[in-house]
Every structure is written in structure tokens, then in C-alpha cells.
Design a protein around this nucleic acid. Structure first.
Lengths: 348, 348
DNA sequence: CTGGGTTCTCGAAGCGTTTCGATGCCGCTG
DNA sequence: CAGCGGCATCGAAACGCTTCGAGAACCCAG
């Protein structure tokens, strides 16, 4: 493997000149630069990563801690992992994957051995054990998600509370007075996963503020569960006419199918909004209004901020919430004033 | 951050003694070892990764090239990524993720900069562009999957051909004479994804050998597609009485549901085997006989072989096929000899 | 012609490990 | 008691890069 030594020799210059030519940290004569570039190309030179880390005290590696839980929804999880990796590469960083038990234990390993310059934290719980670990290690990190106590942390995420409020507001604005929430499976809330809880909190505040009737269900991804979830909503909300979905794609589809099967017209009888959805609702029947959760967006921003802090050393804590965008696809319509019971009406 | 220097001073020994104590490559006096261990613990010492790479010319990092295609089935993909990462950690290796366009381009970067000691190749295509790249780089690698030309490569995977044959044989042994195959979506075969093709090849050979009627369908993951897939099988196979599934879980469930919806009795009228399935069939209705594809198994072995070659330098090419295991759950039963047309019979 | 800037290049000092010979010391054998 | 083999330890030389300080060459103003 060619070393910087070989390049220097081939170009007839010193090692340091090669280094400066490649890093661009000092000006280099045009001719010298040409000869160096030629030598690099010919030898296929690539700086040794270990040497570079040692001398430069920078690794150009980001650790990505992404634990996998029993109830993790793989497609979404994968999308975030990919998004972080892509964003890192765009800034010339590689990504080291920390999973399972190592998602926590590995943090110490990679940071205190200076294997990674920073850590991207995915799948954040409200009281995440990685927070303390990271704090005590003094490691540079960014959370994609907002835990309960953000003191000293840097966090980026979609503003799920605002997203939930936005969804409720749109439904309420359309005259919907009885709004259901289809959330994630119970377990997620139980273990403190941050975004379902934040969404639910926003939902609770919004229905309160708007003074609308409401009910929540948390179905698993099975046909039976989604079926009974719809039944529960109908039972608990006599005037059920609005629905906010904050669940994964298969559940969303199943809920919609169940409404259809019951002869409930969407959006006439029940208007529906998908909130914080990491999937497209364009090919749903009908297509749903949606407040999208775009993995690329959060992850891009998170990596950007992390890399900036690595390279320019500006620390400081912050919580950056990404404002929700509302995409209209026609699944929310004004409620016909005359209708006494929308569901009954729809059954005709 | 404490360096080996600090540890040496704290323990009152030389640097090299600390190094040998930690690596175990030379014997160390009991008392010295105790003092070193104490110093390490107290200082929270952890060897600098860059320095270790440079001096030891080993990084303890594996690159994992896992491109994501349009049609990638995320849960399965994720399972393999996780399995590789876990297996690597068990041997004290970290995993660097190479995705997207970087899945190929990144190979050169990480190997020629000596960032990784070896490469695990996932999601292998029959004519994979990474093969040539890896060959020309002379990089240590292991493929999880079997491409068309394996010259000079090391490959590990479930023996999908044998799995398909096993599935057909079991059905044929049970007297099934008209066997359908539900494969993956067309696109996968088109782009040359290796395992669906290998499974299909095995299926083709087996039905030929056993002299049974056969038909193949390749549904997408939509209700309409699975429905029409079943219709096609029935149409093409007048005596349709056996079915091999080599598709993803949602499709498998949908196919089964469709059979049920049509009043086709499983396993009586049509016996079913899931082949090369990366999901559990235990909670299917009915539970299916299965030849499982266990990500952990292939990935464990792949990493084991890769690490061994890194650490003991034994190169050499090989193709290691993991023998299929057949798990009986009762979805294959002997065909009643009297029945003329099993499907018709089942409808009663 | 001198002095002071630029601009480009170089040598050398690290960075924190691993690893290869020593070396000193011990107990044993002949 | 000399000589020898083993064990435990040490010093120093890499490993390949980055970066600092300095020097050479040149130009321009005074």
C-alpha cells in the first residue's frame, strides 16, 4: 500500500508538502500540486486511516447507537439508520453501528478509545440509559428524538406535539367534534419511547383546548387488534367523526380498511389525518392528509449539527424542533351541518 | 484521556510491560499485572484506536456493504445487518456501514485506507459490481449469498437450491402432484438477486426430477397481487395440491388468507411449505412447515470465517452452503388417494 | 541596495501504540 | 562455582500521518 512517503518521492517533494497539498491547509505551487496529484493518482494513494486518526486526533467516524427492541418497527428504524449514514457520508464521515446491548456499552468503548468523533443517538426513550452514559463520558452527541430531561443535550426531531395539535386543529376546523387517536402499540409507551408519548401529549392538549370529545386506542399490528380498535372508538365516541393516526403503515392501512368494511365513509363520515407518518399516504384508499415524518430531514440536520460541533468546537445544548408540515390529500372535509350522526348517515 | 504512558507511570512499569500485560502476548508477573490492572481501572484507560491501528496494522473493524434497493424488504435486510454486527462484536470487531452508492465506492475507501480489516457483503446479486471491485482491491471479504461466478471468493449462505428441492420432495413424498411456487416480486429476479434465483432453480430441478406439474407466480406485496397469484395457480394447475412459498412474510400470510377465503383447505386440499423463510410460521393459520432462513446462522458463520482469515491469514476461496433444515408443523399431509380433485373436494 | 513581505517548501517533532531484541535475575545442573 | 535456560521487564524502533517553525526565493517600496 502506497504511503505518503511514496507519493512524496514520486512527486519529488517532501512529505509535509504532500500533506498540505492534500489537506489544502497551506498554499501550494501550481506545478507542485500537479505533480503531487499525478503521483497520488498513479499510486492510488489513500491516507492510512489509523495514522490520520493518531496524528490528526480526528477519526471521521460517527458512532450510531440504534438499539433494536422487541417492538421496533423495522422499516422505520432502517430508514433512520440509512438516513444518518447517508448524511454522514455527505460530510465525509463513516458510520459505526452500535446495536443491541452494545448500543449503550459500546458508547464508552468508541468514545474513550477515540474511535468516533461523535455519536448519533436514535430510538430515544424518555429516560434513556444512554443519556447518563454520554454525559459522564463527555462525548459529543446528538439525539434524534427528545427525552424528558434535555439538560446539556443536543436534540433534533420533528415537533410531534405540534404535529398532533396541527392534526387535531385541522379536524376541529372542519367541524369534527369527536376525534379518535390510533397510536402505536401499548408497549412503546410503556418503555417510554419518546415520540409516541410526545404525540399523545400534543393530542391530549389539543382536544382539551378545542373542547372536542376524544378517545385513544393502541392496536398491535394484527387484524384482530385493528378491528377491535375501530370498534372501541365507535363505542367510546358516539359521534365519532374525526381520526388521527399516529401508527405504523400496516396498522394505518388496516384501520382504513376496517372503516371501509364497516361502511364508514372517509372523509365524509370520518375525516382522517396521519400524523408523524414515515410512509407515503398517496396510494391509500383514499389518500390521507398527512403530517409527514421525514427521516432524512431530522437525520440530515442532526448530523449537520454534530459535524459542525466536531469541526468548529461550538458546544452548547439545544433542542431543535422541526415544524410540522401539513399535506392535504382530501381526507379531511367539512362536516355536513345537517347530519345528526355521521356514521349513521354514511351507512345509507 | 489517559494514555498507556499514564498507566505505566501509575503502575511503576514501562510502557511495553503495560502493552504486554493488556495483550497477553508475553508473560507478566502476578504482582505487576495486579498493579497494571488497578491503574487501568482507576484511570479508565482504553487504548487509542488510531494508535493501535497504526502500530498493530489491524483495525478491528469490519465493513458491511449492504445496499438498499427499491424493492428491499426492510425487516429481512435489517435482520442481516444486525446479525452481522452482533457476530462481529462477539469477536471484538466493530462494524462500519456502507450503504447506497457508497456500498460499492466505499469499498475502495475503507480497504485502501486500511480502515477496515475485512468486508462482509450482503444482498448479493448474481453479477454483483462489488465482486470486481473487491477482487481488484485484493480485499479480504466474505459474501453472504452466492453469486454466479464465485472464483476467488468466499461465500456462505443457506443452500437455497437444496431448500427448494427439500420442499418439493416433501410435498411429492406426500403424494402431491401439482405444485405451485410463490416467489418474490419479479423485480428481484430481474436485477439478479441471488437467493430467489437459486431457490427457483432448485424448485425447477426438483419438480422436473419428481415429474410433478408446476407453476410459478411472483406477486408484489399487495392484496390484489396475492389474490391474482392464487387465481393464476389454480388456473394453470388443474390439480393444484401443493404449494411452496419463497416470499416475504406479508405475502405468505396473504396467500394463506386467500386460500382460506376460497375455501381451500390447508393442508388437506393444498399442502404448504415455506422455504427459505426469515420469519416464524408458528402463528400462521395453520402453522406452516418451514425450511427456515436464519440470518444469525449465515452471518455468524460468515463473520467467523472472515475474522479467522484476518487473524490467521488463511486465505483460499470456498463456497459454504448451509444445509436446509426441515421443520414440521403439520401443513403437509399425505393426499387422500381417493380424491379426484382435491380443491373441489375441499370445497364441500 | 537594503529591508520587509509574500509565497512556497522543508525538516522534525510529535501522536499512542505494538513489537523486537536486549538485559537482569533467578534457580538449577554438572 | 561456572554456565545455562526461563522468566519478567525494559528501551527503542517502527507505524504513517499532521503540523509547527523556519528557511529559501522572490518582489516591491524606500
Amino acid at each position: 500500500m502506497a504511503s505518503i512517503h511514496d507519493v512524496a518521492k514520486a512527486a519529488g517533494v517532501s512529505i509535509s508538502t504532500v500533506s498540505y497539498a492534500l489537506s489544502g491547509k497551506r498554499s501550494i505551487g501550481a506545478d507542485t500540486r500537479r505533480r503531487i496529484d499525478a503521483a497520488v493518482a498513479e499510486l492510488g494513494y489513500r491516507a492510512n486511516a489509523g495514522a490520520r486518526m493518531l496524528a490528526g486526533s480526528r477519526t471521521n467516524i460517527l458512532a450510531l447507537t440504534a438499539p433494536l427492541h422487541e417492538d421496533t418497527y423495522h422499516p422505520a428504524h432502517m430508514r433512520f439508520v440509512m438516513a444518518v449514514t447517508k448524511a454522514a457520508r455527505a460530510r465525509d464521515y463513516d458510520t459505526l453501528l452500535l446495536v443491541q446491548d452494545d448500543a449503550t456499552a459500546g458508547l464508552e468503548r468508541v468514545t474513550s478509545s477515540a474511535l468516533a468523533d461523535g455519536v448519533v443517538v436514535l430510538d430515544v426513550d424518555m429516560h434513556d440509559e444512554r443519556i447518563e452514559r454520554l454525559r459522564s463520558l463527555g462525548a459529543r452527541s446528538v439525539f434524534v428524538g427528545i427525552p424528558e430531561d434535555t439538560t446539556g443535550l443536543r436534540c433534533v426531531d420533528l415537533d410531534f406535539e405540534a404535529a398532533a395539535e396541527l392534526a387535531v386543529d385541522r379536524l376541529a376546523d372542519a367541524g369534527r367534534r369527536s376525534i379518535g387517536l390510533v397510536g402505536h402499540p401499548e408497549g412503546l409507551y410503556g418503555r417510554g419511547s419518546n415520540f409516541p408519548l410526545r404525540f399523545r401529549r400534543g393530542f391530549g392538549e389539543a382536544v382539551e383546548r378545542r373542547g372536542v370529545a376524544h378517545a385513544e386506542v393502541y392496536p398491535e399490528e394484527t387484524r384482530a387488534a385493528t378491528r377491535s380498535a375501530v370498534a372501541t372508538l365507535i363505542e367510546r365516541l358516539p359521534e365519532f367523526d374525526g381520526l388521527v393516526l399516529n401508527c405504523n403503515e400496516p396498522v394505518a392501512r388496516a384501520i382504513l380498511a376496517e372503516l371501509t368494511a364497516r361502511g364508514i365513509d372517509v372523509p365524509g363520515a370520518v375525516s382522517v389525518v396521519a400524523g408523524g407518518a414515515n410512509y407515503s399516504t398517496r396510494d391509500f384508499a383514499p389518500p390521507l392528509d398527512v403530517i409527514p415524518l421525514i427521516a432524512e430531514e431530522s437525520c440530515e440536520r442532526a448530523v449537520e449539527l454534530l459535524v459542525e460541533s466536531i469541526e468548529h468546537g461550538d458546544a452548547g445544548e439545544f433542542v431543535e424542533l422541526i415544524a410540522p408540515r401539513y399535506v392535504t390529500r382530501g381526507s379531511v372535509v367539512a362536516r355536513a351541518a345537517s347530519e345528526a350522526s355521521p356514521r349513521t348517515g354514511a351507512r345509507v
